[in-house]
Every structure is written in structure tokens, then in C-alpha cells.
């Protein structure tokens, strides 16, 4: 099948309407998980079927798309999804955060602050923050409806009792506008403060068939205890390539004798800094 035989952005128009309705409902009730009729996509569950459907329903022909996977523009998942939309929608693509109008992301928020008018689409594996504590869907829905969120703190309590500190480092639960407790997808808790953003943030879970959303400038509070406040932790090193001290770092093992280096997980941010003349200990002069 050639590219011009696909409908724009792969999905048919009725499906996109259905997804848009779910997105609008999600935006109207921030943090609430809206069920939607998730479609089979030409990729396996867990590879971002939810995010791809939300992106497909949001794209218009003059959009410019950026896709990142763990912060990187050049990994398999990011490259294949970007190619997928280049082929089926013919939209322009970019690796620069500032130039993109839609950014689909897996497990990171870009370091460069987002601005009004941009849309950030998350791929979500398990949208229900209470799932590992309460396996029954009927019960978790009731707990959301009645704002019974004590159980979420039981999880944080267990962390402190076992590790001395809140050890949850990713998918750190947040409360949206003082109402719904939400799973921000498996982003590092370092990114949690960036959830309060001028951009629209959409979350799509394909296998679990849920969409939820954060409108711009929504209040998002990371849950904690009074005497164990939330701490967006970060590895205590500068980036080895660009020298950044404010970005989230990947740890890369360089040999089998304990050698390691830390470098920015956001490849675009790291590249921009290198282009501007910043170098770290391992950076090219």
C-alpha cells in the first residue's frame, strides 16, 4: 500500500473524532482517566500505541512533529514513530524542541521549557496510579470518584519504612488541581515540577484504553509527607559532553572496570549546548 492511500495520519476520520472527544473531556476534567475505544495500531502494545493514537488525532497538516524516547531523538522507538507520521501524514518533523508544535514523548519532558501552543503527548503503560495497591478496577474508580487517596500514601509510607526515604524515582504520583491523583507516566520524578506548564499535555494509554490530560497552567502537586517533602533528585554530576548541571542525566557504563560517565538524556538540549560552545570533560573540543 502506498503512502497516499492512507487517510491523513493513518487513522480514519471517525476514529479521530472519537479520540478528540476523549481528549476534550480529559482537558475539561484534568487528571480524570477518560475511557476510549483504542484501536489496533501497526506496532506492539507497550511501544506507544496510546501516544500514537493521540498524536494522530491531534495532528494537522502544517504541524511540525518531534518524537523522543527517554529524551533521545535517535533511538528506535522515536525514529520509527517519526517515520510513521512522515509517511502516513506527510508532516514536517524536527529534532528541536523549540520548533516543534507537537512532541510525542516516552518517559521524559524536554529540558527546554515548553511554550503556549505546543502539545506534549505522553505514552502511558499503566494509567492507574492505584493499580499496584488495589487490583480491582471497580474499586479504584470508586476511590477516584470519592477522593479516597489514603492508599497512595501507604505506598510512600512503605518506601520510607523500607528505604529511609521516598524511593519512588519515576511515575511519581501527583494530585491535579487538588482533585484527581494521576500517574504522570514513567517520567523521572526530576521532571515532575515541569508538569506545571504553558503547553497542553495529553496522556494516551493504548492497551488500557485511557486518555487523560493537563490543560496549560494546571496546578500539579507531587504527593509527599510533611516531614518527608518531595525531592526532585538528580545525579550529582555535570554532563560529560556539554557540562550541563541542570539537566537529567543518563549513566553510561564505559568499560567493565567500573568506568562510567553521565550525560544528558535530552539529546536536543545537549546538542544545542555543544553548538553554543559548552563542553564537558569528555566533549569534543
Amino acid at each position: 500500500m502506498t503512502a497516499d492511500q492512507y487517510n491523513f495520519a493513518y487513522l480514519d476520520e471517525q476514529t479521530k473524532r472519537m479520540i478528540r472527544r476523549a481528549i476534550l473531556k480529559g482537558l475539561a476534567v484534568p487528571g480524570y482517566q477518560v475511557p476510549f475505544a483504542s484501536r489496533e495500531m501497526p506496532m506492539p502494545y507497550g511501544w506507544g500505541t496510546g501516544g500514537v493514537q493521540v498524536t494522530a488525532a491531534t495532528l494537522v497538516p502544517d504541524d511540525r512533529l518531534k518524537v523522543i524516547d527517554q529524551g533521545a531523538d535517535d533511538t528506535t522507538n522515536a525514529v520509527s514513530i517519526r517515520k510513521f507520521f512522515e509517511r502516513t501524514a506527510g508532516v514536517a518533523v524536527t529534532e528541536a524542541t523549540t520548533e516543534a508544535s507537537i512532541i510525542q514523548t516516552r518517559h521524559r519532558i524536554p529540558e527546554t521549557p515548553l511554550r503556549e501552543g505546543q502539545i506534549l503527548v505522553y505514552q502511558v503503560p499503566i494509567p492507574e496510579p492505584l493499580r499496584f495497591l488495589e487490583p480491582r478496577e471497580t474499586e479504584t474508580r470508586k476511590m477516584h470518584a470519592l477522593e479516597e487517596y489514603g492508599l497512595m500514601h501507604v505506598k510512600l509510607y512503605e518506601d520510607i519504612a523500607r528505604h529511609g526515604t521516598i524511593a519512588t524515582a519515576y511515575a511519581y504520583p501527583v494530585q491535579v488541581e487538588g482533585r484527581y491523583v494521576m500517574d504522570p507516566s514513567p517520567i523521572p520524578k526530576f521532571d515532575n515540577p515541569k508538569l506545571e506548564s504553558p503547553a497542553i499535555q495529553l496522556f494516551g494509554a493504548g492497551r488500557e484504553q485511557r486518555i487523560y490530560a493537563l490543560p496549560p497552567y494546571t496546578q500539579v502537586v507531587s504527593l509527599d509527607f510533611e516531614d518527608h517533602p518531595f525531592d526532585p533528585s538528580r545525579a550529582d554530576y555535570p554532563c560529560a559532553v556539554c557540562g550541563a548541571v541542570d539537566s537529567y542525566l543518563d549513566e553510561v557504563i564505559t568499560d567493565d572496570a567500573g568506568g562510567r560517565m553521565f550525560l544528558c538524556s535530552d539529546t536536543d538540549y545537549c546538542g544545542q549546548r555543544q553548538a553554543a560552545g559548552h563542553t564537558g570533560t569528555e566533549g569534543a573540543p
Binding site: G150, L151, V154, Y157, I160, F225, E226
Partner: peptide, 12 residues
Amino acid sequence: GERLMAIGARNY
């Protein structure tokens, strides 16, 4: 502690 947290205790 669960029942305490369920009625709003937030001090570890």
C-alpha cells in the same frame, strides 16, 4: 497506618 492516612494524616 492505612486508616490514619485514609482520614488525612500526612506526617510520617
